[in-house]
Every structure is written in C-alpha cells, then in structure tokens.
Design a protein around this nucleic acid. Structure first.
Lengths: 229, 229
DNA sequence: GTCAAATGACTGACTGGTCAGTCATAATAT
DNA sequence: ATATTATGACTGACCAGTCAGTCATTTGAC
C-alpha cells in the first residue's frame, strides 16, 4: 500500500449541479460493488480492473477518476464495508450488560451482519491480504480491532472484579471471545464443501463453553431459550 | 490449481547411481527451502520463480526438472512441511488421556512445533491461499484437518459420556479447541507491530477458560504448575 | 428561448514492464 | 562417446496505469 505523494487527478471531480454529485456517488458505488464481487472471487492480485470496469458498466479509465489505483480501490472497499459495522459493538449501553449478554450480542451480530452478508468476504479479504498490505492491516487494526478491544476490555475487567467471570482469561485476551468467528470464516471458505459448518451452532456451542449451560446436547432440541441467536 | 493433462518432462529424473539420487534430493530440498522463504515473504502470486531459483543457487529451468510448475511446487512445499506434524496429534496413546491433558498437549505442540517454526508460515500460506487453490484446500483438509478431527472427536465424545466435560460443545465442535491457535497466527502476521501477542499466554488463558483454573491472574505469577507449556 | 462556447466526465487503445514456462545449448557424469 | 542434468536467454501472454480524444451537459451571451 505505498502511498504516492502525488494527488490523484480524480480525487474530487469538481462538484457542480446536484444531479452530478448524485451521479458521481452512483458511479462510485457501482465501481465499489463490482470491485467487491471481483476481489471476493479472485483476491487482490488476480483481480483485473478490466473485469471490475466491465461489471460496473464503466470504462477502465473511469475507475481512475474515482480511485488513485488498484490498492486505493481495495482499501476504500474495505473501509466502506466495515467502518459502519464497528459502532454496533462499541456502543455505550454495552457497558451496562453482563458478560454473557455481551458475548451473545457479539455472536448474534457476527452471524447476522457479517457471516450472512458480503461483509464476510471483505473480512476474509482482510485476513488473506492483510499481511501483504501493511496499510490495510493498519487501517483495519485502528478502525476495527482497536475500537472493539478498547470497548470490550474494561467491561470484561470489571466483570472479573465483580466475580461475574470465573477467571481473568477473557479480560486479558478478548480475542478468545471472537476466535470461533475467525474459524467460521476460514472454514467456510476452504472446507465447507467437505464438511459444512453450521455457524450459528458453532457460536452457540462456544457460548455454552464459556458460560456454563451444563446441559446442552444435540443441535436442534435445546431447552434453555436464547432469544435472538 | 488447474492440473494440466500433460505429463511433466521433469517428474522422475531417471535414477542411477546412489550419489545421483542423493544429489537430486539435495537439489530438491534446496528448491523447497528457497520456495518456503519466498512464498512466506510474498505469497503465491507475487513470488517470482527467478527469485526462488537464485535463492536455491540454481537456474530457473532447473526448478522445472523437479516440479511441474509453480503450483505443484507450492503444493509440494505444503505437503513436505505439514504431513510429518500430523502424526504427533493423531497418536493412539492420546486416547487414554483426559481432555485437559490432550488440550495441553495440543497447545504445546502448536506453540513449539508450529508457531516457533517455519511451519507457522506454511499454515499461514494455506489460510491465505487456500480459498483460491481448491487442490491445496482439499489436500490440507484430508491430510491435516480430517485426521486431527477424527482423532479428537471420539476422545471428546467419550469424555462427555464420562462426565469429564461440562457439556458437549467441544465434542460437537473440536474446532473450538484450536480456534485460538488460528487467531494467534493471523494476529501475529497482521497486528503484532501494533500490539504484540504472547502466544503462550494466549494458549494458557484459553486452557484456563476451558478447564476451570478459577484463580489465574497476571501473566507471570501462576501457582498451578503446567509442565511443558 | 436559442445557440455557441466551455467544461469535465468518460472512453478504450496503447505502453511499459513483468514473469511463467520453454528449449537450444552447455556442462558433467558414466 | 553417450546420456543425463543444468543453464539462462527468450517468448508470449498478461495487465496496471495513461492520455489524447469524444461527447453530453452546463453556462452565458444575445
């Protein structure tokens, strides 16, 4: 993600009539949508901007009116898809809830808003391309990881102090709360054709593991109701 | 991983004297070692076979005497590195141990034999390239995932029946036992420069979470001794 | 209201560079 | 001598990024 010092010719196509701006936003959106499809299907390196352009119904040159280069397009795509979702987890009223409720909410958000969505592919892209794109990893760390971690840690720490958690493992490593989600993403993209994985069940089992539920068994017949998940 | 129907000229360089075979094995090994370095540093697509050849002290054409093409080289690399390690987890005497001991052994193997090794990079490559290389994903699934899963599941199921585990979550999803290892690999390659992660501590915390240890606190002062980890 | 001039969004053929894979030739072993 | 192994210059395909030119829309003069 080498940032060229040079300013893009494209960056801000002079804004004029309201119709123009609308049209521009539309164009930009179409390009981003097409890029999502292509990047998700082929990864960063193997994606041809010719294909993105064709899918967006636009000439290749037009892409360069809206984005500096392939890498910026990729990064903007990630930003556009993931920035909105973070707020849902790092919300203030979270702090009031007991850890189990928080874990359930996070699992629910993951299943519905990420796994059941194109965002699944975006996060997969971050995982697969992140190590090769320091800028992307940095953006993702500060924009997603850090914000979620700093929201979770004090809550979990306080829960430990109150004796609501059996030990401080989760408070020290909030990653452990999210680990199964990562497994689900990777498994889904690589092994689902050999052994499909029911993500919702996986997350339920994870919660059972963390918060008692000494009874659970079988995938369908469960007696203790869990509303949203 | 499109398999060309055509047979490689290289496949089996006619074996003759013993010295020759030794030399060939050496050459092959040098190429694989060089390929590991390059693939780990740049990923599959961005790795140049020119660089692999130079690092191996060999001409580019020589690579094609030992491997059909870039993809076969990549796949052989994964096979060579990972096939040996699986036996350590899927060993018969495992079946005798209680679940906690098994979890500790697995964590220990991960920390010492994978994370502390080049194998870390190989698994990372499988994760990042697997979705784009069905052949690789298939090999990895059958050679690694399946073997580990079929070794673990009966053990965990029996532990549930014996009441050695609080619920059947782990038996139904052995992935949950390994999830933090995946997190460690991904975090290490993307976020360590922002927030280094102590993998050993992470795995310890995971075990605490799974198997009681209602006391743990702080990273150094821990009273319940855990030998190998 | 009409028309000409100005604007700038858009196009796509083209360039420059890259790299997997080949093969005629050379080196080395038997 | 012959066979085997190794070399590296070469080729052909590929693709990100460019830019001279097109054309729809807007502006402003009358």
């Amino acid at each position: 993600m080498q940032q060229k010092g040079r300013r893009s010719r494209a960056a801000v196509p002079a804004l004029a009539g309201n119709a123009r701006m609308a049209r521009q936003a539309e164009r930009r959106g179409a390009i981003l949508a097409a890029a999502l499809e292509e990047f998700a299907a082929s990864g960063f390196a193997a994606t041809r901007l010719d294909d993105v352009a064709r899918r967006a119904g636009v000439a290749k040159g037009t892409i360069y009116l809206y984005f500096n280069d392939k890498e910026h397009l990729f990064q903007e795509l990630v930003r556009a898809e993931l920035s909105p979702i973070v707020g849902a987890v790092a919300t203030p009223q979270m702090a009031q809830l007991p850890p189990q409720a928080i874990a359930e909410i996070i699992a629910d958000i993951f299943v519905r808003e990420i796994f059941g969505t194109r965002r699944k592919d975006v996060i997969r892209l971050v995982i697969t391309e992140g190590a090769r794109f320091p800028k992307l990893a940095e953006f993702y760390y500060h924009e997603v990881i850090e914000r979620v971690m700093t929201a979770l840690r004090p809550i979990l720490t306080r829960a430990v102090e109150r004796g609501e958690l059996p030990n401080d493992a989760l408070a020290r490593f909030p990653q452990l709360l999210v680990a199964p989600a990562l497994v689900a993403l990777v498994w889904n993209s690589m092994f689902d054709r050999f052994a499909p994985l029911d993500v919702r069940d996986l997350m339920r089992a994870h919660l059972d593991l963390l918060f008692g539920e000494r009874t659970s068994s079988g995938k369908s017949a469960r007696n203790s109701p869990r509303n949203s998940l």
